[in-house]
């Protein structure tokens, strides 16, 4: 049993190593950007999550059939990993919000603008947080629909509502 799994492992490494390197080098910034938005700009957690996503990419690689583009395929793995990962950190996240963000920074430099954006994104439910981060990363609506499994029309309406909510939150200092 052990030899068989070792043989399988060696075969997998031989067959998929180059493809994995290629995916990692090409899509790591894209994945990291999604994680950063999802983790409210917390770099350390976003890095850990990025690694977790690429671990899942590696596990899924033998089943990649090119039915979707590599980008969509990696986005799907990223979104599912994010959604199923965050619960582990729920308490930590709640502490982070209550302790480090009593209110949104008032005077905005560029960096603060994004801090503010990360903060208000962090106030959204998990799925909306994913959706808006994909919008910020300029993922097309039809691609987003296939990543999330939500009809494109429904998604457009939803994005409109999320944007309105974010604007309201930013106007009212996150309240």
């Amino acid at each position: 049993m052990i030899n068989l799994s070792l043989f399988y492992l060696v075969q997998t490494v031989i067959n998929y190593k180059e493809q994995f390197y290629n995916f990692y080098d090409s899509y790591q910034p894209m994945v990291y950007s999604l994680c950063l938005g999802y983790m409210k700009g917390q770099t350390e957690m976003a890095q850990d999550l990025t690694q977790e996503i690429f671990i899942n990419v590696w596990k899924a690689l033998p089943n990649f059939r090119q039915e979707a583009s590599p980008k969509t395929w990696i986005y799907r793995i990223s979104v599912n990993t994010c959604l199923l990962h965050l619960r582990k950190f729920k308490r930590m996240q709640a502490d982070y919000i209550s302790e480090s963000h009593e209110s949104i920074p008032q005077e905005a430099t560029n960096k603060d603008d994004f801090d503010e954006l990360y903060y208000v994104i962090g106030l959204l439910p998990e799925v909306d947080r994913i959706i808006i981060t994909l919008v910020l990363d300029e993922v097309k609506y039809d691609e987003m629909a296939t990543i999330l499994g939500i009809a494109e029309g429904t998604l457009r309406v939803r994005i409109h509502r999320i944007k309105q909510k974010l604007n309201d939150l930013m106007r009212n200092n996150g309240r």
């Binding site: 899942n56 596990k59 899924a60 089943n63 990649f64 979707a68 395929w73 799907r76 793995i77 979104v79 599912n80 990993t81 959604l83 199923l84 799925v127 994913i130 296939t146 990543i147 999330l148 499994g149 939500i150």
Partner: peptide, 11 residues
Amino acid sequence: IKYSIDARSAM
């Protein structure tokens, strides 16, 4: 449970 399917189906 595959992570490479859409989020709704995965959940």
